[in-house]
Design a protein around this nucleic acid. Structure first.
Length: 587
RNA sequence: GGUUCCAUAGCUCAACCGGAUAGAGCAACGGUUUUCUAAACCGUAGGUUCCAGGUUCGAGUCCUGGUGGGAUCACCA
């Protein structure tokens, strides 16, 4: 809203002329709906200088602004609040701009490059609800950055090697009987997950047996024959043993087939995929450089550390005494790899908040190493997803499987749609597409409407309820509009005499929508977009219920309402696109 | 134990860098359809914003202390 800038400037003039204040932080806010007005200026901060009552101060500023800004129709004062009201003409011009120019988003990104790493799965088990939150958040924030003019690289770093992968491999070798996705009918990632679970069960059993023999727990973990086999497997893998690598490739291949299916259904994608098997050795040279420049230091046993106590953290190891690297070493190396490849201005990690400490450390190390890009690092730290029974624990089998969840909620969409019986004449293909759009949309919206930073509760019952603040509610609003527009032609409108309050509210919401996108980008927070779209949908339903659109007799008013509906539809679709959610034309 | 994040209606969440009488959805209760899709709309009820202090013209929001909960602090990833 350009008007805000204009008002801010004029207010600056007003207070400098009236009270001789030169520099002052002036901010207008949206008028609380309980009061009359569009924008509000709080005048309390000026009282020191005006030395007048709040009401009189507001009066003076209000008069000044009304004279200078012709868009202002009137103002009212409640205590220290100056509520400014614009003319209907002003709002109608806002809508006209929207109709003629589309959604005007300030391109604050200025084509700067931003690499967003998200998803980053392990290839030893299928995706679960927590991963869905990650994927959906990552994808959405990419869409939002793209919308505000960044050059976005969607990046996935696949964790495809390591001890946990070897566990599935050992179990498969022992008990797999050459089972394949085809022979078992299992999706590849689920097949591998089955052997990961099998490993853990037998491993736990073995430990119990050893403990029963009087060996203590720590030692039992060391002596477990399964674990010894697994460690040998990892060693063989690192040495490039042909059979081991072949098995690894085969099993990972199955997992990727499974993941591809899940990603596709979720509607997420990547521009650049790194595999940890290619990157896990990176960072070692940087450790050596850092040692030379005395950013790192070596202990007697040969292990290499960095002292972060000046920053209030601990000493952190960056290389083991046996010369192998640890997790953070890889991350240092991968950050460098990314920078060399993309020369990005910002790089974002969409990773759960249990790794807050890790990313704090990573950024500090990069800074200490003098890496120019270190300041561009941002950890988009999101909260865990809890279930009504408590935390999700893969070991206790309380995780919500991504594929099962999608099946369930799509089935619910089907059932609901059939019960309502409004889809006569749609082909079976159209119908199954619709159920996907509704079901997957419902899951995504459920996860995205909550502030990303916050831990959230996933209630299965609530997630398949399509009433209220849900994707299907908003999608339904969209189909109402689509249906209206099918029944009429493109129209132009002139200014109707009086703007109805609900009409004005809708125009305001649409006009403010670009600000919402900016704010969502600045705060790395898609939920702001979700909530704004919800507000718009809610208001539209009220409008739709209260006022006649196609049936309106006055030609100009009818055309205006059609245009308004059209703009609402565009905005909903645009917002949902930023969330990675589709909209149907009928439901 | 050190560090860190969180606590808002019965439940799940909002509240735009400190602004007005803290808002939605679900659940409960009551109403709305011969009229553009009722997956909708309207109304009623529901609050000491965990507690105690402090800063301020003004605090759910900032500071201090407490209570309760999560995460993290490995030569794990």
């Amino acid at each position: 809203m350009r008007i805000t800038t204009k008002l801010t400037e004029k207010t600056q003039e007003a207070i400098s002329e009236l009270y001789d204040i030169s520099e002052f932080d002036i901010s207008f806010e949206q008028t609380n709906p309980k009061f009359e007005g569009d924008l509000t200026l709080v005048v309390f901060p000026f009282l020191k200088y005006s030395k007048k009552r709040p009401e009189d101060t507001a009066e003076e500023i209000g008069n000044f602004l009304t004279k200078q800004v012709h868009e202002i129709k009137s103002f009212n004062i409640v205590k220290g609040f100056l509520n400014i009201q614009f003319s209907d003409e002003y709002w109608l011009n806002e809508l006209k701009d929207h109709v003629n120019l589309g959604i005007q988003i300030p391109k604050i990104g200025d084509n700067n490059k931003i690499v967003v790493e998200y998803s980053s799965p392990n290839t030893n088990k299928p995706l679960h609800l927590g991963h869905i939150r990650n994927n959906v958040l990552g994808y959405s924030i990419c869409q939002i950055f793209d919308a505000v003019g960044f050059d976005v690289v969607k990046n996935n770093l696949v964790n495809d090697r390591g001890i946990h992968i070897c566990k599935s491999m050992v179990a498969y070798q022992k008990w797999g009987n050459n089972e394949t996705p085809e022979s078992s009918g299992l999706k590849g990632d689920h097949l591998i997950g089955k052997y990961y679970v099998k490993f853990d069960k037998n491993y736990q059993k073995e430990i119990q047996e050893l403990i029963a023999k009087g060996i203590d727990k720590e030692e039992a973990k060391e002596k477990s024959s399964l674990m010894i086999e697994t460690r040998n497997m990892l060693q063989k893998w690192e040495q490039g043993d042909t059979n081991t690598v072949a098995l690894w490739k085969q099993m990972n291949g199955w997992v990727y087939e499974g993941f591809d299916h899940t990603y596709k259904r979720l509607g997420v994608s990547f521009d650049k995929i790194y595999y940890e098997s290619d990157t896990y050795l990176l960072g070692k040279e940087i450790v050596q450089e850092g040692l030379k420049s005395e950013v790192f230091f070596k202990k007697e046993d040969g292990s290499i550390w960095i002292d972060l106590t000046p920053e209030g953290l601990d000493e952190k190891i960056v290389q083991r005494s046996d010369g192998t690297s640890v997790y953070i070493t890889q991350d240092i190396g991968t950050a460098d790899l990314k920078y060399n490849e993309f020369k990005m201005d910002k790089f974002v990690y969409v990773v759960g908040n249990e790794q807050d400490y890790h990313f704090k450390v990573l950024q500090l190390i990069l800074k200490r190493l003098g890496k120019s890009y270190a300041d561009g690092l941002y950890h988009l730290s999101y909260g865990m997803v809890d279930l009504p029974e408590g935390k999700m624990k893969s070991r206790e089998g309380t995780v919500v499987d991504a594929d099962e969840l999608m099946d369930e909620v799509v089935a619910t969409a089907k059932k609901q749609t059939e019960e309502l019986g409004k889809t006569d004449g749609m082909s079976s293909q159209e119908l199954s597409d619709l159920y996907e759009v509704l079901g997957i949309g419902a899951i995504k919206y459920y996860l995205l409407k909550v502030d990303a930073k916050k831990r959230m509760m996933y209630d299965p019952k609530e997630s398949i309820d399509f009433q209220g603040n849900t994707a299907p509610f908003i999608q339904y609003t969209y189909t109402r509009i689509a249906s209206l527009l099918r029944a009429t032609e493109q129209v132009n409108f002139e200014v109707p005499a009086i703007l109805n309050p609900i009409e004005k509210e809708l125009v305001k919401l649409i006009s403010n929508y670009p600000n919402v996108i900016l704010s969502a980008a600045n705060n790395y927070n898609p939920s702001e977009v979700a909530n704004a779209v919800y507000e718009i949908a809610k208001s539209f339903n009220k409008f739709y219920h209260e006022l006649s659109i196609l049936g309106e007799q006055d030609h100009n008013t009818r055309c205006f309402r059609i245009s308004l509906s059209n703009s609402v539809g565009h905005t909903i679709k645009h917002g949902f696109n930023l969330l990675g959610i589709q909209v149907p034309n009928r439901m």
